[in-house]
Amino acid sequence: MLQVTALSKEDAENCPIREVLSKVTGKWQVLIVLALEDGPLRFGAVKRTVGDITQRVLTENLRSLERDGYLTRRVEAGPPLAVFYELTPLGYELLSPLKSLVTWAAENHDHIRNAREAYDGR
């Protein structure tokens, strides 16, 4: 089994599993990476693809994903000025496990919902 136990705050802060997963498994990060699967998109197109995300939250998540090397931001002079976001090779590598997780979630959603209802009914 992978080492997932952190016995101190310092261990937790230095745990590569926790550090990476905390940055790529939030709902917004997953949806943004999936939105960019087919190629570069402008900010507005990413926002429309994700749907229910605010401009501020999208900006924060795009910056975080760029900082960690999963995507790049490219500015093209206008008019109008165009900003594109595109997955890096690391971002494309991340797609495979994310798509597996998303597929699993879709296939098991009814089971999970039923388990929640049964639990809540007790």
Score class of each variant (00 low, 15 high):
residue 3 Q to D: 15
residue 4 V to F: 13
residue 4 V to Q: 06
residue 5 T to D: 08
residue 5 T to G: 04
residue 6 A to D: 13
residue 6 A to R: 04
residue 7 L to N: 14
residue 11 D to N: 13
residue 11 D to Y: 07
residue 12 A to R: 12
residue 12 A to I: 05
residue 12 A to P: 03
residue 13 E to R: 11
residue 14 N to C: 09
residue 14 N to P: 00
residue 15 C to Y: 02
residue 15 C to F: 04
residue 15 C to L: 14
residue 15 C to T: 06
residue 15 C to S: 15
residue 17 I to M: 07
residue 17 I to Y: 07
residue 17 I to S: 02
residue 17 I to L: 15
residue 18 R to W: 11
residue 19 E to D: 14
residue 20 V to A: 12
residue 21 L to G: 09
residue 21 L to S: 14
residue 21 L to W: 09
residue 22 S to G: 15
residue 24 V to M: 05
residue 24 V to S: 03
residue 25 T to C: 14
residue 28 W to D: 10
residue 29 Q to K: 06
residue 29 Q to S: 14
residue 29 Q to R: 09
residue 30 V to A: 10
residue 31 L to N: 12
residue 31 L to W: 02
residue 33 V to Q: 05
residue 34 L to F: 00
residue 35 A to N: 06
residue 35 A to S: 15
residue 36 L to C: 07
residue 36 L to W: 03
residue 37 E to M: 07
residue 39 G to Y: 08
residue 39 G to S: 07
residue 39 G to H: 05
residue 40 P to L: 03
residue 40 P to S: 12
residue 41 L to T: 02
residue 42 R to K: 15
residue 43 F to Y: 13
residue 44 G to C: 03
residue 45 A to W: 00
residue 45 A to E: 15
residue 46 V to Q: 05
residue 46 V to E: 05
residue 48 R to C: 02
residue 49 T to G: 01
residue 49 T to H: 13
residue 51 G to R: 06
residue 52 D to K: 10
residue 54 T to D: 14
residue 55 Q to E: 15
residue 56 R to T: 14
residue 58 L to P: 11
residue 60 E to C: 05
residue 60 E to V: 12
residue 60 E to W: 10
residue 63 R to E: 13
residue 63 R to N: 12
residue 64 S to V: 10
residue 64 S to Y: 02
residue 66 E to G: 02
residue 67 R to Q: 12
residue 68 D to W: 11
residue 68 D to A: 11
residue 68 D to S: 10
residue 69 G to P: 05
residue 69 G to A: 07
residue 69 G to N: 05
residue 71 L to G: 04
residue 71 L to D: 02
residue 71 L to F: 08
residue 72 T to A: 05
residue 73 R to A: 06
residue 73 R to K: 15
residue 74 R to G: 03
residue 74 R to N: 08
residue 74 R to W: 01
residue 74 R to K: 14
residue 77 A to P: 02
residue 78 G to D: 02
residue 79 P to S: 13
residue 80 P to M: 03
residue 81 L to F: 02
residue 82 A to D: 09
residue 82 A to W: 07
residue 82 A to L: 11
residue 83 V to K: 02
residue 85 Y to G: 06
residue 85 Y to P: 05
residue 86 E to K: 08
residue 86 E to T: 11
residue 87 L to Q: 07
residue 87 L to P: 08
residue 87 L to V: 10
residue 88 T to Q: 09
residue 89 P to I: 04
residue 91 G to Y: 09
residue 91 G to W: 10
residue 93 E to I: 00
residue 94 L to C: 00
residue 96 S to C: 01
residue 99 K to C: 04
residue 100 S to H: 05
residue 100 S to L: 13
residue 102 V to I: 07
residue 102 V to L: 07
residue 103 T to R: 13
residue 103 T to D: 12
residue 104 W to R: 04
residue 104 W to M: 06
residue 106 A to F: 00
residue 106 A to S: 03
residue 106 A to P: 01
residue 106 A to T: 01
residue 107 E to K: 11
residue 107 E to T: 00
residue 108 N to C: 00
residue 109 H to P: 01
residue 109 H to N: 08
residue 110 D to P: 01
residue 111 H to M: 10
residue 112 I to Y: 11
residue 113 R to P: 01
residue 114 N to L: 09
residue 114 N to F: 00
residue 116 R to S: 00
residue 116 R to A: 02
residue 118 A to M: 06
residue 118 A to T: 08
residue 118 A to Y: 02
residue 118 A to Q: 06
residue 119 Y to F: 15
residue 121 G to Q: 09
residue 121 G to K: 08
residue 122 R to D: 03
